[in-house]
């Protein structure tokens, strides 16, 4: 009995120390977001004179820091990121569910099609972005939110489809077959019978697509370099430029950008690994 107590104490303590040490860089950024200008570059994890000034500037007033540059308030970029991420997430989770259902029940396209979708997840985006710049210019969607919503599925669709394949597996076939006999078409069976039963999986897939859209940097850097459609990830580069680093506001912006995705990732924690490994690890 005694040995178990000691083991519990030693192992728990070790694990928690590892965990805290591991998260120190992020904890330091949170601390810095509350530091006044005099403490910015210090290693302390607790601000001596905590302040909300950084958040106030990032969220509401914007800021001007002499030669180090100026930055506008975050609102419009937050809005851009929200619109693009929500639209992408809705579109790709629904398209992903439809495709997943056709693959799972009807073997649509055979294993080739499923493999092809899987391999899209592995493509280095930088390699095909120049043609996509040309494409969006041709369609008049360069530098618009619409252009980003058009291109983001390249990143999110493989994840949502493969996740939905796993989620739809647990929907029983029998009700579908009964509905088919009653004369429903494949499409009617899908949206009247399958989708309601897989709503939890669909919500999780939507969150996955949201996480990936929110974090996307390279695509908007090249497809939406202007102010009109610039999302948060590209905006964040404002705080670190050739004149130096705006420590406090940068840290505050980093925290603001990270909090929504950390929360969402925690909400789908149970499925996160399954989604990221395309269903290989359950």
């Amino acid at each position: 009995m005694k040995k178990t107590h000691i083991l519990t104490l030693v192992i728990s303590l070790a694990c928690w120390l590892v965990c805290i040490a591991y998260l120190t860089p992020f904890l330091w950024m949170i601390a810095t977001s509350f530091k006044p200008i005099g403490e910015w570059a210090t290693p302390e994890l607790i601000p001596k004179e905590p302040t909300f000034k950084n958040y106030y500037e990032v969220l509401i007033t914007g800021g001007i820091y002499g030669v180090r540059g100026h930055f506008p308030p975050i609102g419009r970029y937050l809005m851009n990121s929200l619109i693009v991420s929500i639209c992408t997430s809705l579109i790709t989770s629904i398209l992903g569910a439809m495709t997943a259902y056709a693959i799972l029940r009807y073997r649509a396209g055979g294993s080739m099609f499923a493999n092809w979708i899987l391999s899209l997840r592995m493509i280095p985006a930088v390699a095909i972005l120049y043609p996509l710049v040309v494409l969006t210019r041709t369609l008049g969607l360069y530098n618009t939110l619409g252009g980003l919503i058009l291109v983001y599925p390249l990143v999110t669709f493989p994840i949502t489809t493969w996740f939905m394949i796993g989620a739809l597996k647990s929907v029983p076939k029998e009700t579908e077959e009964a509905a088919m006999l009653d004369g429903c078409s494949e499409w009617q069976v899908f949206y009247k019978i399958v989708l309601p039963q897989a709503s939890g999986g669909l919500a999780t897939a939507a969150i996955f697509a949201f996480l990936f859209s929110w974090a996307e940097f390279l695509i908007p850097l090249l497809l939406a370099p202007g102010e009109a459609a610039m999302p948060l990830t590209v905006f964040a580069a404002y705080f670190s430029n050739q004149y130096g680093i705006l420590w406090g506001p940068l840290a505050a912006a980093g925290v603001i950008i990270s909090i929504p995705v950390i929360t969402l990732a925690a909400a789908i924690q149970k499925y996160l690994i399954r989604g990221l490994t395309m269903g290989f690890v359950r």
Partner: peptide
């Protein structure tokens, strides 16, 4: 023997949920 297994795993999710850009800026 680990106490608080679930909490510790949620915390360890943080690095991979942060956009890589923010990770880059944080470490910069």
């Amino acid at each position: 023997y680990l106490q608080g297994k679930i909490l510790i795993r949620s915390l360890m999710l943080i690095p991979m949920s942060i956009p890589a850009v923010i990770v880059g800026l944080n470490w910069k």
